[in-house]
Design a protein around this nucleic acid. Structure first.
Lengths: 234, 234
DNA sequence: CAGTGGTCTAGACCACCAG
DNA sequence: TGGTGGTCTAGACCACTGC
């Protein structure tokens, strides 16, 4: 089954492997030949095969274990890659004019309950920020954010009416770890008014918390106006 | 600035690069040294540096262009990786007992409007499937699915009351391309009843369409019961 | 223990593209 | 057109783990 010319690029190897999985030449659960044999068959170096297979394993289509070898995944857990851009860029990328309204900022120590929720110790100084992002003048998303001032003291001097906290933090506050969640919630009266919709409208809610080392940087709740759809391709 | 011992693993190189970005030694927008220089500084092979930087570029933290070199991304678009497992495995992974109720199946030609929405040609035979997935006996997610019978004829003979279409398709219907979307919607009366919630409750909706080559395989709308949270880490 | 994948190396050629 | 990243190669050693 070897090819005369050989397959000398990792993309080519990947395509051929995908073709065989697709054609059920290699069925889910089946072991596939080892890297050395595949390299010989394809007429390329083992490293080339390795790169092709490693990527497929990362996407969940193959399962690899030393000594046990490589198998076609029985229950492929597909990975979808979600882009998390700056809100301004997301709006501009959709071809709309970006607008921003800072609703309020407040310094306050983290409450016991709130602090725990944020992963901050009670009493740590926090900055609470509430803002609205607009697309073509219409409400796009409501941002409700807490920033750990111990982790990002410089934000106290930033002009958050000129640049959104979202953008300021992306530019100035590095993080090493983040947690993202998506859920749905009914709009309460206040949010409904801000987003120019009706009470109890279904909203897509995104929550994120980021850490730098073991220190919480910020936690935010984004409430998207009705009609928003998060989207990706695999 | 070179290290006596050297950094001989790509993870080590990546950590050091991240440290410098974090410490603002290399600021957003700044160019960083080229691969040859970094390899010399770290005392490792260029390929090692390449792998470390390539991964960082894939996650959006660096921008790389031939000749122009590598820069710290000015507006890092973070990528979150979302796992899309089989529904049964997701429920079992949460420690709940999995249950499944097939509500109905129906063969019918794709309507003009529906067919277009599915990316199918009108008149192509489709299988409509409606089912409920349960966690510990409670409704977890409602599945409303169309399957292109021209692409997956074998599903007509599957016993979809014993294995969910979700799982059958993952095992038997390969796809080359998929489209995933998330949004929020108010429950209508029927869905509310099925999910054991109240009308107009906010539901997280996931829609997916998959193709094999240029042929639509299936399109599905998943309505998650209130309280569901999709979650990932970066 | 031995076979497999994981990784590093030193060198090479090439594709791209900014200057 | 030259510098940069993108990739391939042949070989090597190592880490893990099934047998």
């Amino acid at each position: 089954m070897s090819r005369a010319g050989g397959i000398a690029s990792w993309q080519g190897v990947q395509e051929e492997v995908l073709r065989r999985i697709n054609a059920r030449i290699w069925k889910p659960g089946d072991p596939i030949p080892n890297e050395v044999d595949l390299a010989a068959e394809f007429g390329c170096a083992r490293a080339t095969v390795n790169r092709a297979l490693r990527e497929l394993a990362e996407t969940g289509l193959l399962e690899r274990r030393r000594k046990a070898g490589t198998r076609v995944a029985l229950h492929p857990v597909r990975k979808a890659i979600l882009d998390i851009p700056i809100i301004r860029l997301e709006i501009e990328g959709r071809g709309h004019a970006y607008g921003y309204r800072l609703l309020r900022t407040a310094r306050r120590p983290a409450s016991a309950a709130g602090g725990a929720a944020l992963g901050m110790r009670p009493g740590q100084p926090t900055l609470r920020i509430e803002a609205l992002h607009l697309a073509d003048g219409r409400p796009f998303v409501h941002e409700d954010r807490w920033v750990n001032l111990a982790a990002v003291p410089q934000i106290a001097t930033a002009d958050l009416s000129a640049i959104s906290a979202n953008e300021w933090l992306v530019r100035h506050a590095p993080f090493t770890r983040g947690d993202f969640g998506f859920e749905a919630a009914n709009a309460d009266r206040r949010i409904a008014g801000l987003l120019d919709t009706h009470e109890s409208a279904a909203l897509l809610i995104a929550t994120r918390t980021t850490w730098n080392g073991d220190q919480t940087v910020t936690t935010v709740r984004l409430s998207f106006a009705p009609g928003y759809r998060m989207h990706t391709t695999i």
